[in-house]
Structures are given as structure tokens and as C-alpha cells.
Design a protein around this nucleic acid. Structure first.
Length: 254
DNA sequence: TCATTAAATTGTT
DNA sequence: AACAATTTAATGA
């Protein structure tokens, strides 16, 4: 028996395109790269953008399916994971509001290489593969954004390898939060990350109780503040540097 | 706007 | 895993 299993994980449904609707003007502000585009490009993108609401446990995209969209999170929380040969799912990262994913697959017009599943009810948007390539062919600003995105995510995956080797729950939670609060990759997370301790548990692979304990340790270290249904980061660098044994106390006051 | 109730989330054992 | 305490959301006067 594995650890706490995600509800609906086995018989999860994939979102159907028919449920999508056009994007609302106020939702456009949640898309960080729109500002890189000129008027014409913007018009085509806004016309192309679709929005779907995803229920907890539902899959936004599934391994092996042909690419359809480049996705972004407007609201909610998703997780990127994959099934190992043994059937044990391994979580790569969480995707908070402002996060975009799938560009690598879209670039090559291949099949998705991971599952994206909603941890809670979320609003997901996206542009078609064709529009993505159309932008790539004519917008330098868009190219810059995609390049930055690829580079930052590379850094995240390298960091994720370290997290896996960390022993204590406190360290794992600290580093995972450090990733989730990435200001460039996830500009939608400004100061306050809306995530329950249960959701964080699913993400990090720990029980809710252990997460709760770890969070209090991090709060005692003045790195975060626990709030109802979310967290506030007080010291992002401290989170990323966090080690279990406070052998020395290098107070980073300035 | 306020009071009441249900639901969600957290804290503890 | 179970339970109690706390916070938020929903409802109706």
C-alpha cells in the first residue's frame, strides 16, 4: 500500500474540450506573457484562448495523448506527475496560478510525457499548437518568454532531484514551497499561496499530519506564516536554504 | 448587515 | 485514522 492515495486517481476522467468557453476580459490579466505581444498578435491569442473548469482529480492532459494545447493555470492548483514502471506515480511539480506548461511537447508536436491532474477545482486555459507556433514565428517577445520558461523549469527539475534525496520532511516541504513561490515561473502567486495542507501533502508525498508539523517548524523559523487555506512566505531565500539541523543560526537580517 | 447553519480546514491524539 | 476546534461560505431574515 502506498501512502495516501489521491481520490479518483485511478478512474480519473480527462477534461473534454466541449466544456471549454471563451476567456473573459478580467481573466486576461492572469496571463503573464500577453504583455509581450503587439495588438495583432494579442487579438489572435485572445480569440484562440479557451477556458475550462477542472474538478479535483480530473486530468488536464494524459501521457501519450497527442498535443492539443499549451496550457496555463488561471486559478487553482495542478500537479505534474508520471507513472513509473511499477505503477507508483512520481510527482514532478505543482502548478499554481500563473504557471504555463507543455511548451516542450508543443514545440516538437509530440505526445504529452506526463499527466497533469487537478488537486482542487481549477481554471485552466490554453492556446492551440498552431497559434503557439504562429507566435513563435513572429514575436520576439514571445520567444523570450518561452526561452525563459524553459530555462527556469530546467532549474526547477534539477532542484527537484535534490529534494528527492532530502531526508527530513521539513526540508522537503521547505524546498517544495520554494519552488511553488517562484516569482518568474508563477507570477500568480504573489506572497500568498492558496494551498491546503492536504494538497501540499499530495504534492510532496507526505501525510497531512506530517505536513502540518513541518509547516509549524518552518513558521517557528520565521520562514512562512500559516494561514487558513494557505501560506505566506516571509523569507523565500531562507526557505530554499533551509536545513533541518540549525547547527548555526545565520540570521539573515539586513 | 447580522445571525444561524453547513462545509472546509486545521490542530491533536 | 479519527475527532474536536476553528475558520470560511452560504443562507435567510
Amino acid at each position: 500500500m502506498a501512502s495516501a492515495h489521491f481520490p479518483l486517481a485511478s478512474n480519473a476522467a480527462t477534461v473534454r474540450a466541449s466544456r471549454s468557453r471563451a476567456i473573459l476580459p478580467e481573466e486576461l490579466r492572469a496571463i503573464p506573457w500577453l504583455g509581450c505581444l503587439d495588438g495583432e498578435e494579442r487579438a489572435r491569442v485572445v480569440d484562440d484562448l479557451r477556458v475550462v473548469q477542472v474538478d479535483p482529480g480530473e486530468l488536464v492532459c494524459r501521457v501519450g495523448r497527442p498535443v492539443t494545447y499549451w496550457f496555463g493555470v488561471l486559478d487553482g492548483l495542478l500537479k505534474m506527475s508520471n507513472d513509473t514502471a511499477l505503477g507508483v506515480p512520481i510527482t514532478f511539480t505543482g502548478l499554481p496560478p500563473g504557471g504555463w506548461f507543455g511548451e516542450g511537447t508543443v514545440l516538437k508536436r509530440e505526445a504529452y510525457r506526463y499527466n497533469i491532474q487537478a488537486l482542487r477545482r481549477s481554471l485552466v486555459t490554453g492556446i492551440t499548437v498552431d497559434t503557439f507556433h504562429w507566435l513563435l514565428d513572429r514575436s520576439i517577445g514571445f520567444n523570450r518568454y518561452v526561452m525563459m520558461q524553459l530555462n527556469e523549469r530546467l532549474g526547477q527539475f534539477i532542484a527537484a532531484r535534490e529534494i528527492d534525496r532530502l531526508s527530513s520532511a521539513e526540508e522537503r516541504v521547505a524546498r517544495s514551497l520554494g519552488a511553488l513561490f517562484h516569482p518568474v515561473l508563477y507570477p500568480g502567486v504573489a506572497g500568498l499561496l492558496r494551498i491546503t495542507q492536504q494538497e501540499l501533502g499530495y504534492l510532496v508525498g507526505l501525510s497531512r499530519q506530517r505536513v502540518n508539523e513541518a509547516l509549524h517548524a518552518l513558521q517557528a523559523a520565521r520562514l512562512i506564516r500559516i494561514e487558513y487555506g494557505g501560506l505566506r512566505v516571509l523569507d523565500l531565500d531562507g526557505l530554499r536554504r533551509y536545513t533541518a539541523e540549525p547547527q548555526a543560526a545565520p540570521a539573515s537580517r539586513a
